[in-house]
Design a protein around this nucleic acid. Sequence first.
RNA 1: GCGCCCUUAGCUCAGUCCGGUAGAGCAGCUGACUCUUAAUCAGCGGGCCGCAGGUUCGAUUCCUGCAGGGCGCACCA
Length: 496
Amino acid sequence: MDKQKSDRLINLEAIKKLGWDPFGQRFASAQPIKSVLTAYDPAQEGKPATVAGRIMIIRQHGKTAFLDIKDWTGKVQVYIKKDKISEPLFQLYEQLDMGDIIGVTGGVFKTKTGEITIFAEQITILSKALQPLPEKWHGLKDVELRYRKRYLDLLTNEPVMDTFLKRVQIIGGIRSFLNNRGFIEVETPMMQPIPGGATARPFITHHNALDMDLYLRVAPELYLKRLLVGGMEKVYEINRNFRNEGISTHHNPEFTMLELYQAYGDYQVMMDLTEALITTLVPMQSGSDLKIKYNEVDLNLNSPWPRKTYQELFRQYVGLDWSDQNAVSKKAESLQLDFKNKPYETLANDVFEKLVEPNLTGPIFVIDYPAAICPLTKSKKDNPAVAERFELFIAQMEIANAFTELNDPVDQRRRLEQQLKNRAEGAVSLDEDFITALEHGMPPAGGLGIGIDRLVMILTNSASIRDVILFPTLREKSPVPPAPDGHRGSAETKGG
RNA sequence: GCGCCCUUAGCUCAGUCCGGUAGAGCAGCUGACUCUUAAUCAGCGGGCCGCAGGUUCGAUUCCUGCAGGGCGCACCA
């Protein structure tokens, strides 16, 4: 055991000897530290207050000491003076370490250097810390440690706590925005017998009692549409999707998605809704100004956001007409894209992703995708080759994806079967019950998906998705390295 | 999956180029100090230098493999 921990265990025993429970009891009388600071009034110097929090630092001065106590609203200084506190309490103080959680009651005053401070009269130990805090000045810097021990990251790096509190606000803001518009929040299966709604590779798990494989959902889409069939006209779900794909600064295997469906709407309605939603959320984070900075790049989120067609952007950034199959295929070849018996539209979309998307600083709605790459989308009335779909790009990231939902069960079956043929990967089999549901009649509807993590990235100016997910997926780290030839560790194992 | 980079004390980092068995600050311990602000002052402990091999009289340092992480690419949202 390391020295720091054993020293703290000694202090813990000393605290027990003094008659205290080192892990404390209910302490419901504490007020938020921030409110203590704002309530301070020089006319009422010495007015008592009670706080609870973690000791972040101790400055000892012989028979006095200053402690900084932190709760999640702020930090306040506590002043301990031997002749102003009972002897047992001073003995307790002497066994306290940085990182311990304590409760303090005392009069609030201003020191001669002007800092609002609680003059301790009562101290209670609420939890003894057996591990030291990270370095007080630099905090926890090691990126891996920050992700693995997020609790320390939150504790010592203020901007981190700030980001995650903002995330909570953003998601809360989305809920109230939608609830105010008459949407209801629902929960649909995360474990699905047939993964559908997107083409990503799924995670597989197994149910023992039913003896059946289940897939962690890649999207809730097909279930939410069943609810449209069932008569729920405005539904949404905010929850995790799981995709068994690579990990990057923009991809975590489990990520949070908002999906919503509005009966009798279409993708135009969804576009207006998306723009209204996000422009409502931005001021919550950055004041009323909708001009924000992301990764040193200026983004102007003031309405209206440009809407450009897929083909228009294709022509602009690829320099070719999308329908010119020969030229586009040649382009794909020169980009060394993977052809592996892909349909033309998919290949052309690879070109789009490679050459167009890096230019989409946004915000910009890319609208009217080729129908062939949109199996769940209704085509334009006057042009079956073009789907009523848009994707919203901000900072080169796809933030939202939405369409006029395909509600023709015959067409839907045909398209899903076609997709199964084209891409074995991901697609397991056809969800027959989904088709049956459509056969019962689904109202025309607009559907929308927003990647919450990415949206939070933009609104909190975070460069990596791991900075907006509390516990991002990391490889498991074996706690003890193996000692193969008994070089160390288990010294002499006998026999053989 | 591929490429580049990183891994030294509980934490933040030097040192490695040019091989000789490791340093600082914070944290810890002891002492001084009754309004401090990264408190200060004096002293003391603390290291499988990510792991495993190789080269060498000798490896934290050079080489190889592995592990974990970061970034980029690929896949995807």
